[in-house]
Amino acid sequence: MRSVKWTKRNSIYLAVLLALAAFLIYLPIGGSRRNINIGILVFIYIALGQSWNLLSGMSGLFSIAHALFYGIGAYGMSLMLARAGSNPLVGLLVGIGANLLVALIVGMVGSKLSGLYFTMALIGIHSIFYTLAGQLTITGGWLGISLPREWQLTRKELYIIALAIAVFMTVLFQVIRSSRIGTMFVALKENPQLAASLGSDIRKWRILAVLISATMASVVGSFYAIYMMAHNAEVFNGTVSLRIMMVCMVGGVGHIFGPWVGSALIIMDEYIRGAMPTEFASLSVVIYALVLIVMALLRPQGIMGSKIFQPKEVDVRAIENLDAREKTE
């Protein structure tokens, strides 16, 4: 790790971090129920943010429907617990398993084609799950699933688990970033042609990125199911995906503490929504989306990010054709 210079900027960061840490420790002890809930929500989005960061920030595969993986994780857990009478560990694994399968399909499309097609494939698969989840009887259709009482945890336990997940995902992100895998991901984003010409198999790495990211989101989703003890198809809702993107893009794309900073938005949103009368609930989303647009236009790399987020639009097939042609000439 590079040595950290003791500049004024870093001192501010450190102060903020310490204050944040103090606040986080205080919450489960002395905070109100509502604040603890907000805290848990924040951790969920931080963890999801790291998952998105890995796929879109590090690897450059812009994921516009990340709630897909999240929702599958949630349903994996809830279906196993409620319908199959199993335990949370199985639920977790089933969620991850289903996600790996979906991620494989998504990855196969994304590995071959450029960003726009990947986005559309993601939206297509996401729509399938969203509509099915809302209509099948096994998932409880519109009303959703509720989990058996025996698995309910106390609020404090949930808080600690959520915090642990958020920290774990952050550490995982850093570990991957510093490893060879992470370097490959970034190389693929920054200069795919160069990476390909050096002999890397772009497809393989892209699929791997989706797999890892989906697994991370799956874990968070499964936690969400246990946390809420009941949920419906709205776990797949576009607002979830949008929030994840907002957290990362405002906080800093590809930066390890980006989601932590961006989660301030979640806090802001919850308080605003709590303060506004219900008729104006739609307007709060409008404000939310406006902030996103303004941030995206003015500072696409987010508060903490340093490089402009511009993954190269690459057509893997075109590159492969180029290689093939060069080999025959």
Binding site: F62, I64, G115, L116, T119, G238, T239, L242, M245, M249, E279, F280, S282, L283, V285, V286, Y288, A289, L290, L292, I293, A296, L297, P300, F309, Q310, P311, E313
Partner: peptide
């Protein structure tokens, strides 16, 4: 950048839908 466009227009979509709702 196409991805920024996608993000911004999706944000706009949310705005329009919720304005219609309102």
């Amino acid at each position: 950048n196409r991805n920024t466009q996608i993000l911004c227009t999706m944000g706009l979509q949310l705005i329009i839908i919720n304005l219609a709702n309102f």
